[in-house]
Nucleic acid binder design. Structure first.
Length: 499
RNA sequence: GGGGGCAUAACUCAGUUGGUAGAGUAGUUGGCUUUUAACCAAUAAGUCCCAGGUUCGAGUCCUGGUGCCCUCACCA
């Protein structure tokens, strides 16, 4: 069963214990601790000085009366040299029990080897954690199998430096976006993850059950409706980095749980959201340390994603939905006759009765013909009002609603509205949705949200940005799996079949 | 859910027309006081994803299943 307790290592562990050594001590027996990167950076000043280093041994060369170790910590790697005549007899003998993958502490003197490499010349070392499983051993390849890397991310992280770096950069991107919000006087909030009624997006939810209350609950598919309640309450600028859950297929762009940042601001509209989204994306690109384009008139950073280069500089391109639709589909979205002909030509079923179904069909054509052409960064704005239940219709033409979607790298990265705040119209649209046979549509009207609107939601703009996808484009990572520490996977199959 | 591909030692991979299972690395043992994928010698290690089938004989061929990858569908 526990075949990851390697027999050879168990033997070493036994030897350590026989010698009275704790293989899992609670404390580092030496005072202080320096990171490998610090030691390397300050190698000159530290020459000849005593230092303490802790980390995992991932390389070992030379053996006899001398051993070179590669010790890795969070900051990087440094070489350690352990020599017989500088160690106690006990410490030297204990090298026999040292395997790759073990975590150790070293006390020693900073100096240089004959070939000039900055190295900690140990005067003492201790086992901090005896590893019982082998780390990946192939010196040229390491751990490359995608499935293993994801399933054993804890190994992947200490073996593949670039992976760790990517996650750290993801964190920096999020931090940079948070700072933009704070600069604009936004407040960071947390709203419930367990929703009695799901809404704010079109997606199937995960459902769960509250035992004590004996009620069905849903993991949120979006935080939207709660955040807008906050605006009703007078919190005029709020944002939330929200983990959301959608019960859908898994693909290179989809994970059942993912992170989006949603933000809402009173007394602005979709236009204001466009400006802020632009600022957020550019701040994220800067945090990702994307290279600046030379000779550009405004600061422009270059993202390389799936072999394409994207120029990120303000202002982003802006396309009106109807215009770009006309260009790529070849007819006006409001020209019912032409649209019906197109649909037939495409073999798409004729839409059912009513505006809602008609515009859903139009949007199907949009997704089919226009979205693949949107490389980005580009805002598409003024969407058909009928398919935007949470967006406010335009004052001068209620066929269209104040909404944009932001595309980059061939993916939809953001979605924003001039928030619908007319409680009666909102109720109407909710009821229409509930009647929709689409299994993705919400199944009941969130009457409490309608009531909140009845108290008065100030005019507002709101936006949601898919963090994982944004990080993919900025870091040039093809699969969402590789920007998530622990992407969703089916359970590992048991080894031998049980009788 | 449809189509295609992959699954062999701890890791990375070979394995011919079907004929007793291989390498490098890591491990173990021994040697070596300046290595950088250290080196030298010896050595152990596999339910060839699982279950059936064809065959004298299956890692190899067939059927079914499982996992992963790609693709389409789904997914604002």
């Amino acid at each position: 069963m526990a075949d990851f307790f390697h027999p050879d290592r168990l033997q070493k562990l036994e030897e350590l214990r026989t010698a009275g050594t704790d293989a899992y001590p609670a404390q580092v027996p030496y005072p202080g601790r320096e990171l490998a990167a610090t030691l390397l950076a300050q190698a000159e000043e530290l020459q000849g000085q005593q230092v303490v280093l802790c980390g995992r041994v991932l390389g070992r060369r030379g053996y006899g009366k001398l051993a070179f170790l590669d010790v890795h910590d969070q900051s990087g790697r440094i070489q350690v040299c352990l020599q017989k005549d500088k160690l106690s007899e006990e410490d030297f003998a204990r090298l026999k029990q040292l395997n790759l993958g073990d975590v150790i502490a070293v006390q020693g003197e900073m100096s240089k080897t004959k070939v000039g490499e900055d190295t900690v010349f140990g005067t003492g070392w201790t086992m901090l954690t005896k590893a019982l499983e082998n780390p990946p051993s192939d010196k040229t390849q390491g751990l490359t199998d995608g499935e293993l890397r994801a399933r054993r991310r804890y190994v992947d992280l200490f073996v593949n430096e670039d992976v760790r770096d990517a996650y750290l950069r993801r964190g920096k991107i999020i931090q940079a976006m948070r700072e933009v919000f704070l600069q604009h006087d936004y407040a960071e909030v947390d709203t419930p993850v367990l929703h009695p009624i799901y809404g704010g997006a079109n997606a199937r939810p995960f459902s769960t059950h509250h035992n004590a209350l004996d009620m069905e609950l849903f993991l949120r598919i979006a935080p939207e409706l709660y955040l807008k309640r906050l605006l009703v309450g007078g919190m005029e600028r709020v944002f939330e980095f929200a983990r959301v859950f959608r019960n859908e297929g898994v693909s290179m762009r989809h994970n059942p749980e993912f992170t989006m940042v949603e933000f809402y601001q009173a007394y602005t509209d979709v236009e204001g959201m466009m400006t802020l989204t632009e600022e957020l994306v550019l701040a994220a690109a800067e945090a990702a340390e994307l290279p600046l384009e030379e000779g550009a008139t405004t600061p422009t950073r270059l993202a390389t994603f799936r072999g394409e280069t994207f120029r990120l500089g303000a202002p982003f391109e802006r396309l009106r939905y109807a215009d770009t639709f006309r260009e790529h589909v070849g007819c006006d979205p409001q020209d019912r006759e032409a649209i019906l002909a197109k649909l037939q030509e495409q073999g798409i079923d004729a839409p059912g009765e009513g505006d809602y179904n008609y515009w859903k069909a139009v949007n199907a054509l949009f997704e089919e013909h226009v979205e693949p052409t949107l490389r980005g960064p580009v805002f598409v704005y003024d969407y058909p009002a009928a398919i935007c239940p949470l967006a406010k219709p335009l004052a001068n033409d209620p066929t269209w609603a104040g909404r944009f979607e932001f595309f980059l790298g061939g993916m939809e990265l953001a979605n924003a509205f001039s928030e619908l705040n007319d409680p009666q119209l909102q109720l109407e649209k909710f009821e229409e949705q509930v009647q929709d046979i689409d299994p993705e549509a919400p199944n009941q009207v969130d009457m409490d949200y309608v009531r909140a609107l009845a108290y008065g939601l100030p005019p507002a703009g709101g936006c949601g940005i898919g963090i994982d996808r944004l990080v993919m484009v900025l870091l040039g990572v093809d699969s969402i799996r590789d920007v998530l520490l622990f992407p969703h996977m089916r359970p590992e199959t048991e080894g031998p079949a049980q009788a």
